[in-house]
Simulated scan of single mutants.
Amino acid sequence: MQPIKICLVEDLKEVRDGMTSLLTMDERFELLSTFADAEKAAEELPAWQPDIVIMDINLPGMNGIECIKKVKGLCPKSQFIMFTIYEDDEKVFEALAAGASGYLLKKTPFIKMAEGLLELHSGGSPMSTQIARKVIKRFQNNETKKQVENLSPRENEILLLLAKGLLYKEIATQLSIATDTVRQHIHHIYEKLHVQNRTEAINKAYGKN
Rank of each mutant, 00 (worst) to 15 (best):
E191Y: 06
L167H: 10
L161C: 04
Y190F: 08
S152H: 04
L159F: 04
E155Y: 00
A172H: 03
E170L: 10
T181P: 01
I177S: 04
T181N: 05
K164V: 01
A178H: 12
L167D: 11
G165M: 06
K164L: 10
V148S: 05
A178G: 13
H194G: 08
Y190L: 03
D180R: 13
L161V: 05
Y168Q: 07
L193V: 03
V182Y: 02
N156T: 02
I177W: 02
H194M: 00
E149V: 03
T144E: 09
N150R: 13
L175C: 08
E157W: 05
T144R: 14
I158R: 02
K169P: 01
D180I: 13
L193M: 11
L166Y: 13
H187F: 10
T144V: 15
I186L: 07
S152P: 05
T144H: 09
A172M: 11
T181H: 00
L161S: 07
Q147N: 03
A163L: 00
Q184V: 01
K192Q: 08
G165R: 05
V195E: 02
T179I: 05
E149K: 12
S152W: 03
Y168G: 13
E157R: 11
T179E: 14
T173N: 13
I177E: 00
L151C: 01
K145Q: 11
Y168L: 10
Y190E: 04
Q174F: 10
E155V: 06
S152R: 13
Q174P: 05
Q147K: 13
I158E: 01
H185I: 08
I171W: 00
K169S: 05
L175P: 03
I189R: 07
I158G: 00
N156C: 12
A178K: 15
K145D: 00
L161R: 03
I177N: 04
L151I: 06
E191S: 15
N156Y: 08
H187P: 00
L166S: 06
L167T: 10
E149T: 14
L160W: 05
H187L: 14
Q147L: 10
Y168H: 11
D180T: 15
H188Q: 14
